[in-house]
């Protein structure tokens, strides 16, 4: 058969080969349909480990207890015992090496998250002792009178 018939065919085959070569070079080796099949599991397997490798910032109260068991024991009899240490003291990150000291959030706004009174009958919120922030010593830090680790007894009232 004549050459002019085959020439476009060769060109088409070359383009197909080029597409396959590009696919071979560009698509990661671990990319494919994994456990959940083509519809939901079509992905790069290595990405799962990338997500697993994210650093843990909040180390939980159990981690704090390893060194600060006296503080944990102090709060354990108060109504605040359910609150995780890191909610007020901030994420432990690499503490005690980095950062060496954690900054306690002593802002009034932190306490008001739970203790600003809201008249919501069908929520657990209304069961918490609350105040009206605009009437109850506005602008003052709560910890001036209340000890966050033992909130029931007001301390050093002047």
């Amino acid at each position: 058969m004549n050459n002019h018939v085959f020439r476009p065919l060769y060109l088409a085959l070359a383009i197909v080969a080029l597409v396959f070569l590009a696919r071979y070079l560009l698509v990661p080796k671990d990319f494919g349909a994994h456990e959940r099949g083509y519809m939901y599991g079509w992905h790069r397997k290595g990405n799962e480990n990338e997500w697993k490798a994210v650093t843990v910032k909040y180390k939980t109260s159990a981690y704090c207890k390893e060194c600060h068991d006296d503080k944990v024991a102090g709060i354990s009899s108060s109504s605040h015992r359910f609150i995780a240490c890191e909610n007020c003291h901030g994420p432990a990150l690499g503490h005690p090496e980095d950062p060496m000291k954690l900054n306690v959030d002593t802002r009034r706004e932190l306490c008001l998250r739970c203790h600003a009174f809201l008249p919501y009958p069908s929520s657990g919120r209304s069961a918490i002792r609350g105040i009206d922030p605009e009437v109850h010593y506005p602008g003052k830090q709560c910890s001036m009178c209340h000890n966050p680790h033992n909130p029931r007894i007001p301390t050093s009232r002047s």
Partner: peptide, 8 residues
């Protein structure tokens, strides 16, 4: 793209 997926 297969950029989002469900793990096992």
């Amino acid at each position: 793209l297969g950029a989002t997926y469900q793990t096992q």
